[in-house]
Protein backbone atom coordinates (compact mmCIF):
# COMPACT_ATOMS: atom_id res chain seq x y z
CA UNK A 1 0.00 0.00 0.00
CA UNK A 2 1.54 3.33 -0.98
CA UNK A 3 1.83 5.82 1.87
CA UNK A 4 0.33 9.22 1.27
CA UNK A 5 3.53 11.23 0.93
CA UNK A 6 1.95 14.45 2.13
CA UNK A 7 1.69 12.99 5.64
CA UNK A 8 5.01 11.22 5.66
CA UNK A 9 7.49 13.66 4.22
CA UNK A 10 11.11 12.67 3.82
CA UNK A 11 12.13 15.09 6.57
CA UNK A 12 10.08 14.30 9.68
CA UNK A 13 11.13 17.61 11.27
CA UNK A 14 9.95 19.74 8.36
CA UNK A 15 6.41 19.96 9.71
CA UNK A 16 7.65 20.73 13.20
CA UNK A 17 9.84 23.52 11.85
CA UNK A 18 6.94 24.91 9.86
CA UNK A 19 4.71 25.00 12.93
CA UNK A 20 7.48 26.59 14.98
CA UNK A 21 8.12 29.24 12.29
CA UNK A 22 4.41 30.00 12.04
CA UNK A 23 4.21 30.45 15.83
CA UNK A 24 7.19 32.80 15.75
CA UNK A 25 5.52 34.90 13.10
CA UNK A 26 2.21 34.93 14.98
CA UNK A 27 4.02 36.08 18.11
CA UNK A 28 5.58 38.98 16.20
CA UNK A 29 2.30 39.99 14.61
CA UNK A 30 0.24 39.67 17.79
CA UNK A 31 2.41 41.22 20.46
CA UNK A 32 2.86 44.97 20.71
CA UNK A 33 6.37 45.19 22.05
CA UNK A 34 7.43 48.22 24.02
CA UNK A 35 9.14 50.63 21.67
CA UNK A 36 11.88 51.56 21.92
CA UNK A 37 13.50 48.83 23.97
CA UNK A 38 15.95 50.37 26.44
CA UNK A 39 18.86 49.19 28.53
CA UNK A 40 19.96 51.19 31.55
CA UNK A 41 23.30 51.29 33.36
CA UNK A 42 24.06 53.34 36.44
CA UNK A 43 26.24 54.06 39.42
CA UNK A 44 25.96 56.65 42.19
CA UNK A 45 26.99 59.54 39.98
CA UNK A 46 25.88 58.79 36.45
CA UNK A 47 23.61 56.68 34.29
CA UNK A 48 23.56 55.59 30.68
CA UNK A 49 20.37 54.88 28.76
CA UNK A 50 20.66 53.04 25.46
CA UNK A 51 17.69 52.59 23.14
CA UNK A 52 17.31 50.80 19.82
CA UNK A 53 15.56 53.11 17.35
CA UNK A 54 16.16 51.67 13.89
CA UNK A 55 14.77 53.75 11.07
CA UNK A 56 14.18 56.85 13.17
CA UNK A 57 16.14 59.90 12.11
CA UNK A 58 17.87 61.90 14.84
CA UNK A 59 15.67 64.86 13.84
CA UNK A 60 12.59 62.81 14.77
CA UNK A 61 13.73 62.05 18.33
CA UNK A 62 12.94 64.30 21.31
CA UNK A 63 14.64 63.84 24.63
CA UNK A 64 13.44 65.71 27.70
CA UNK A 65 14.60 65.55 31.29
CA UNK A 66 12.67 66.71 34.30
CA UNK A 67 13.81 65.96 37.84
CA UNK A 68 14.50 62.22 37.76
CA UNK A 69 12.44 61.33 34.69
CA UNK A 70 13.93 61.05 31.23
CA UNK A 71 11.50 60.93 28.33
CA UNK A 72 12.30 59.71 24.83
CA UNK A 73 9.61 60.42 22.27
CA UNK A 74 9.32 60.80 18.56
CA UNK A 75 7.99 59.34 15.42
CA UNK A 76 8.98 56.49 13.22
CA UNK A 77 7.86 57.32 9.71
CA UNK A 78 6.58 54.59 7.44
CA UNK A 79 8.42 54.21 4.14
CA UNK A 80 6.50 55.46 1.16
CA UNK A 81 5.00 53.02 -1.25
CA UNK A 82 5.80 54.01 -4.82
CA UNK A 83 3.08 54.01 -7.43
CA UNK A 84 2.21 50.59 -8.85
CA UNK A 85 3.98 48.94 -5.92
CA UNK A 86 2.60 46.64 -3.26
CA UNK A 87 3.65 45.37 0.16
CA UNK A 88 4.76 41.77 0.26
CA UNK A 89 5.69 41.84 3.93
CA UNK A 90 5.21 44.33 6.74
CA UNK A 91 6.83 43.34 10.00
CA UNK A 92 8.14 46.65 11.26
CA UNK A 93 5.96 49.05 13.24
CA UNK A 94 5.51 52.76 12.63
CA UNK A 95 3.98 55.74 14.34
CA UNK A 96 4.53 57.91 17.38
CA UNK A 97 6.23 56.54 20.45
CA UNK A 98 7.07 57.75 23.92
CA UNK A 99 8.93 56.21 26.82
CA UNK A 100 9.56 57.66 30.24
CA UNK A 101 12.36 56.27 32.36
CA UNK A 102 12.62 57.06 36.06
CA UNK A 103 16.19 57.26 37.23
CA UNK A 104 17.36 56.76 40.80
CA UNK A 105 18.48 60.40 41.07
CA UNK A 106 17.65 63.89 39.90
CA UNK A 107 19.44 64.66 36.63
CA UNK A 108 21.75 67.60 36.03
CA UNK A 109 20.08 69.03 32.92
CA UNK A 110 23.29 70.82 31.94
CA UNK A 111 25.17 67.56 31.66
CA UNK A 112 23.06 65.40 29.38
CA UNK A 113 24.85 63.94 26.38
CA UNK A 114 22.91 62.19 23.61
CA UNK A 115 24.42 60.48 20.59
CA UNK A 116 22.74 58.60 17.79
CA UNK A 117 24.52 56.16 15.50
CA UNK A 118 23.36 53.19 13.40
CA UNK A 119 19.87 53.28 14.89
CA UNK A 120 21.09 53.23 18.49
CA UNK A 121 20.52 56.17 20.83
CA UNK A 122 22.93 56.53 23.74
CA UNK A 123 22.18 59.03 26.48
CA UNK A 124 24.55 59.79 29.32
CA UNK A 125 23.22 61.68 32.35
CA UNK A 126 24.93 62.88 35.51
CA UNK A 127 23.76 63.52 39.02
CA UNK A 128 24.19 67.16 40.13
CA UNK A 129 27.27 67.69 42.31
CA UNK A 130 25.09 69.02 45.16
CA UNK A 131 22.97 65.86 45.30
CA UNK A 132 25.79 63.36 45.46
CA UNK A 133 26.28 61.53 48.72
CA UNK A 134 29.06 63.01 50.82
CA UNK A 135 31.33 61.04 53.01
CA UNK A 136 31.45 62.43 56.53
CA UNK A 137 34.72 62.15 58.29
CA UNK A 138 34.49 61.09 61.90
CA UNK A 139 36.60 63.16 64.21
CA UNK A 140 38.46 61.59 67.05
CA UNK A 141 37.54 62.91 70.43
Amino acid sequence: MPWPMAFYPADPFALLRRVSDALDRAAIAGAAPIFPAVNVWQNDEAAAIVAELPGVGPQDIDITVKEDVLTISGERRAPELPEHAEWLRRERAYGRFTRAIRLPFRVDTEQVDARFADGVLRIAVRRPEADRPKRIAIKAG
Binding site: I28, P79, A85, E86, R92
Partner: peptide, 24 residues
Protein backbone atom coordinates in the same frame (compact mmCIF):
# COMPACT_ATOMS: atom_id res chain seq x y z
CA UNK B 1 18.66 37.65 15.86
CA UNK B 2 16.29 37.43 12.96
CA UNK B 3 15.86 41.04 11.83
CA UNK B 4 12.39 42.38 11.02
CA UNK B 5 11.81 43.16 7.37
CA UNK B 6 9.43 45.08 5.14
CA UNK B 7 9.30 44.09 1.51
CA UNK B 8 7.85 46.06 -1.37
CA UNK B 9 7.24 44.79 -4.84
CA UNK B 10 7.74 47.51 -7.41
CA UNK B 11 7.67 47.56 -11.19
CA UNK B 12 11.43 47.26 -11.37
CA UNK B 13 11.90 44.53 -8.80
CA UNK B 14 11.69 44.28 -5.03
CA UNK B 15 12.79 46.55 -2.19
CA UNK B 16 13.74 45.06 1.17
CA UNK B 17 14.02 47.10 4.34
CA UNK B 18 15.70 45.18 7.12
CA UNK B 19 16.21 46.67 10.57
CA UNK B 20 19.51 45.92 12.26
CA UNK B 21 20.15 48.48 15.00
CA UNK B 22 23.77 48.70 16.11
CA UNK B 23 25.14 47.52 12.77
CA UNK B 24 27.47 49.91 10.94
Amino acid sequence: WRPLADIQQTREGIVLMVEMPGVA
